[in-house]
Structure formats: structure tokens, C-alpha cells
Amino acid sequence: MTVRGGRPALTADEVEQRREAILSAVLEQISERGTAGVRMKDVARAAGMSIGTIQYYFDSREALVLAAYRRHSENVVSRVKSPFPGEGDPWEGLRRTLHEFLHVADFTMRTRLWIEFVAASARDDQLLELLDSVFLTWKQVVREVVDAGVADGTFSPRVDPEVAVDALLAQLDGFEIAHAIGSRGTDVERIELVLQQTARALLGVEPSHPE
């Protein structure tokens, strides 16, 4: 095993675990303090590491924030892509997709992160590019389920399918903002129910399909 400065070198798994701990600490700081409030010393304290260790893996605060948003986005997208494999009942696939999105990790923390992500992206081209990629990926996930339902007759859209997808995502975005600020009636269960009922109305889902 390679030795640096008298200490055994970390394995690839150990390096990844350190990076994960650092990025998790960054996301917690963003949720609590906002993107502009992230400081290396606070991240180091939350991660239980020295500032030098943080800087060894991420050479700047900007690189640290970008990596944290990228990792968070990848994790969320990977979860919501899995419920509908391209076969089976499209309505059930859409219900499960929405359910998974609302139940990935802590929804309150995620809504706060999303608001911070959008705000920070307005001033950072790299974050803006990442945000656009995340949004398009999430939209494609929903669109694929809708297209499958239209193709097999499960859905009889009352509007153009593209409009239906945009309307669902816009409603979800609105709920995320309302939930983040603590508005009444925006608990996860109610959000899921309203989204399902909206989807039924837009996509013409027959009553025989359960909630």
C-alpha cells in the first residue's frame, strides 16, 4: 500500500466516502444558510474534517458548491427514473414516479435546496447549465410515462401531452415553493393527492384506475 507522510493512502472507497461526507455537509449548510452562506470552516466542522482536507478534494468554495448541487441532482434524478421501466400500467408508473419524487430523502430540505439552486443559478453559468440539465431530465422522465399511456390508450389527454407534462411540473414547482415556506395544506400527502387528481383531469384517466 502506498504511504504518504507516514500514513497509508486511502482506498478508492474511503476517498469516495470522504467526498460524500463533505458534499452532504455542504448541502446541509446550503439548506440552513443559503448558497451564499456556505463557508469552508462550517463545512469542515459539519463533516468532522479539517479545512485542509476539504481543500484537498475541492480547491475552491465554488467547486465545492457546484459538486454538491451536481451530486444532489444526480441522486434525485436516479431515484425518479427507476419506477417506470417502460412496460406495465402507465398510470401506475406515473403515480409511482410522483410518489418517489416526493419521498426521496427529506422533502423539506430538498425544497429549500431547489429554491437555493434556482437562485444561485441566476448568477452562475455552470449552475445554470446543471439546473437546465436536471429539469430537462426530470421532464423527460414524466414525458416518457405520458407517451406510453397515450400509446396504449390508458391516457386520453384533454390537452396536448406536452402541455399536460408542463402543467404537472409547474404545479409541482409551485408546491415545492409553498412547502419550503411552510404554507398550510402543502404536506407531502396532500401534494401527492392534488398532483394525482390534476394528472387524471389532464390525461383523461378512467375512474377504474385507483388513486
Rank of each mutant, 00 (worst) to 15 (best):
P83R: 07
F107E: 05
T53K: 08
M109L: 14
S73E: 05
G93T: 02
T97W: 04
W91L: 03
M49D: 01
R96E: 14
R112N: 13
M49I: 14
I51N: 10
E87R: 13
H99W: 12
A68F: 04
G48M: 10
A119R: 15
A120Y: 13
E116S: 13
R96S: 15
F107K: 00
L94F: 01
E74M: 05
N75S: 12
P85I: 03
R96P: 04
R61A: 01
I51P: 05
Y69D: 04
A122I: 11
L66Q: 14
I51V: 14
G48C: 06
L98T: 07
Q55I: 05
D89A: 05
F107R: 08
A67W: 10
G88K: 10
I54D: 02
A120N: 09
P85G: 12
R95G: 03
R123P: 00
G48V: 05
R95C: 04
F58Y: 15
V65G: 08
H72Y: 12
L102T: 08
W91T: 03
L64Q: 06
T97D: 03
E92H: 06
E87G: 04
F84K: 01
M49P: 00
E116H: 08
G93L: 04
L64V: 05
D59Y: 00
L102F: 11
L113A: 03
F58P: 02
K81G: 00
E62L: 09
R110C: 06
S78V: 07
A122K: 14
D59M: 01
F84Y: 14
A105W: 13
D59G: 14
S73P: 00
V80K: 01
R112E: 12
F117R: 09
T108E: 15
F101L: 15
A63R: 13
I115S: 14
H103F: 08
D124G: 06
T53G: 03
F117W: 08
P85M: 04
K81E: 15
T97Y: 04
D59T: 13
F101V: 02
D59I: 00
D125A: 15
R123V: 00
L94R: 03
H103C: 06
E87I: 03
W91F: 04
S73C: 07
D124E: 06
H72V: 01
R123I: 00
F58S: 04
T108I: 01
L66P: 00
T111Q: 08
G86C: 06
P85Q: 07
G93S: 09
G48Y: 09
A122D: 07
D89R: 05
A68V: 08
V118N: 09
F84G: 02
L66C: 00
